[in-house]
Amino acid sequence: MADTGPDFQRLGDDLYRHWESAMSTWWDQVLESDDVLRATGQNLSAMASARKSYEEGVDQGLKRLHLPTRQDLIQVTRIATLLEERLLQLEDRLLRMDDGVTQLQEHIVVLERETVQARIEAAEARIELREGLAKITARLDALEPASAPKKRGQRRAPARSGTKARSASKARAATAAEE
């Protein structure tokens, strides 16, 4: 004969499985039974009514003693809850206003950036124009000896400022046109 004893673990597991299966079947019948469920409902209803009567009795006793009742407590808490809700609604509004201000600030920053950019571009355009004018002036100055030969003894003008040079050039150009 094999040298093994009974497997108590397996035996226990099998017993448990059979017990659970049988109990589950029985409980399923009980807990799905219309009669049981109706009776449970009636029982719960009676329990709730008894509890309500008891609490109404306690409330009346407290009222006679001029003490706050459970109903008073519930009403005060409801008021506190509604007040908290109002406060949070105000907080919501403030947060939305804050969102609006933030958006406005972002918009202003964008606008400012665009304005500064436009001013920089205008300034750059003016600088370019001036440089262009200066180049033209320089060319005109360079053309000057060729178009109008210097008279003997005429001294070369010292280095002139841009404005003076331009007015002199203009004058020379006008003279040339008249000629």
Binding site: E32, L37, G41, L44, S45, A48, K52, I74
Partner: peptide, 21 residues
């Protein structure tokens, strides 16, 4: 099973809420 229990003819909802809060 919960849905079979919680049927208007079996589950005294109003009594429970009115009585127990």
């Amino acid at each position: 099973r919960l849905s079979r229990w919680a049927r208007p003819d079996r589950f005294p909802l109003d009594d429970l809420v009115d009585g127990l809060g």
